[in-house]
Design a protein around this nucleic acid. Structure first.
Lengths: 304, 304
DNA sequence: TATGCAATGTTAATTTTTCACAATTCGCAA
DNA sequence: TTGCGAATTGTGAAAAATTAACATTGCATA
């Protein structure tokens, strides 16, 4: 049934773009069938739908098809809320560190949009790109071996370098968190950097959404004693929060939904980042409900 | 006239996506006007047009609105042809260097797609991301201060690091090239890295499209004696090519068009990378010319 | 004041998309 | 083989979106 999809991709490889009509003739099926095929492919990000046809999807993104991309979608609301809370801890003139987590990536966006005069150190390539949108901060990228999973730099060179740095405030995230013990992760190269930074900072803030509480992973990374502040969301278990406070941690609770971004992101599976719009049945419309069921991404023709 | 555009962006910031009808009511102008506004914004990559409305453009690309993005489009065909030629010089097991140029970015794509077993050193964040798609090469990112213009790492830390490296084959590009003298550039931090690498490599290959010949810029970067091979396209001035050969350089001429990608990229200005499709008037169609003048990028609704 | 230009609004023709349903194919168990 | 159900595909009409052509407005300038 779906031996048509490779053929469509072939065609796009040659032409860049192709109309439904042409594909229909080419493959000897109705436009409706082509349309359905292409819908599925576009949903996976394999192609880009254009009005009346399809387009090759090679162009823009360095996020598609990466592991980071799918991680970005999980608990995104919480991460954003946490990032916004974390922003409050950042003082101008500070030197801060961001790790390669997707939570820190959200924080990077906020820093780029709303702050200046900072020196920001990170081993995340994505964070650099995000931060680079604002030239009023100094961005130091820790280099090293590039880890395609986290899109960040790790390994001995990165570790050596990290040892020479000293920051005022380090933001790190984690895979698992036991409030009485500390943080846990599985992938060595990335967590070594965190351990080193933990020793090279004045204050360490852990960004951790509620889903991480009680989770543990292969290796212990940070001891709870190394963590000065914990920033989490309002669904974090109250008992854990109380325990953290009793243990002397500063705990900051972010309210999810307060600074929520596009509403449409909630009701969408983690698939293709551009597939964000959905004002079907006029859900987003203010006045009379639109009768359209559309909501498809469109880019325009070149300037005439 | 265009104080509407910020309002549209605000709206998208809140909602993620918005229909033309809604924007029309919101701003008190006709849908046609909104449509025209949005067309312009989409053309610049500020938003993404969707059928019946607009969508926030935040999601995917770290290229939009960057200087690299516009550079990527100029002479792209030549750059791709040159990159493909350069690929022929790459031997498995080699350690190679790529600079932060867009030509090297094209080469990075080829390396990721077609080679393995390499160690690739680069100070370009974009090249890392591109190369990271293939985990069969080792990628070393040189860190340092992040330069938002080139999306690469520069400055003293990067330079110190570069001094400790040694590669078999370095690929560098340039802004200006006088075949009798050497290469010229204007922006200090990026070219310092090239100078250092030039001393830390067995062989240096200059990737230079024909438009660079005879151009000079503020500072001399590499002396012609440091360049072992020159890779250029078939529009390079023959006299210069002859002179280079006479001077003992290996010269590789890439034929533009041979490995050309989407045909549509030729007839499109440097604007938004996703704006690639244009089968207006059935130009790309095989059979009877389509009567449509569309050709707009569309992405589908979520899976039902 | 006249004139031209740019921005905007209006409308109708055209195209695309959607939807509902019919027809077909396919797998598979009876 | 037969028959059933599900998945796939095709059809046509209705709905929506896009385009293009043209009218209008406002404003700056000759």
């Amino acid at each position: 049934m779906e031996e048509r999809q490779p053929l469509i991709l072939d065609r796009l490889e040659k032409q860049g773009a192709c109309s439904f009509d042409e594909l229909s003739k080419l493959l000897g099926v109705s436009t409706m069938t082509i349309r359905r095929d292409v819908d599925g492919m576009a949903r996976r990000g394999a192609v880009i739908r254009i009005v009346g046809g399809v387009q090759k999807a090679d162009a823009p993104s360095y996020l598609y098809e990466t592991a980071v991309h799918s991680r970005l979608a999980v608990q995104r609301e919480s991460k954003r809320a946490i990032a916004r809370k974390a922003l409050e801890l950042v003082v101008s003139q500070h030197t801060i560190f961001l790790d390669g987590s997707t939570t820190c990536l959200e924080l990077a966006k906020l820093l780029a949009n709303e702050r200046k005069g900072l020196t920001i150190v990170t081993n995340s390539a994505l964070a650099c790109l995000e931060l680079g949108k604002n030239t009023e901060n100094v961005i130091i990228g820790i280099g090293g071996q590039f880890d395609a999973n986290s899109l960040s730099y790790v390994g001995p060179q990165a570790e050596d370098w990290a040892k020479t740095l000293f920051v005022d405030l380090a933001f790190v995230s984690t895979k698992g968190f036991l409030p009485s013990k500390g943080t846990y992760e599985s992938f060595m190269p990335t967590f070594r950097i965190k351990q080193i930074i933990a020793q090279q900072c004045v204050e360490l803030a852990l960004l951790v959404d509620h889903s991480k509480f009680g989770q543990r992973a292969l290796s212990k990374v940070l001891d709870i004693s190394q963590i000065h502040a914990v920033i989490t969301d309002d669904q974090a278990p109250p008992a854990a929060v109380a325990a953290l406070k009793a243990g002397g941690r500063k705990v900051h609770i972010a309210t999810v939904g307060e600074h929520t971004r596009p509403a449409c992101e909630n009701r969408r599976p983690a698939c293709h980042p551009q597939v964000v719009a959905d004002f079907s049945e006029g859900k987003l419309s203010g006045g009379t409900p639109a009768k359209t069921t559309l909501g498809r991404v469109v880019l325009p023709n070149p300037e005439p």
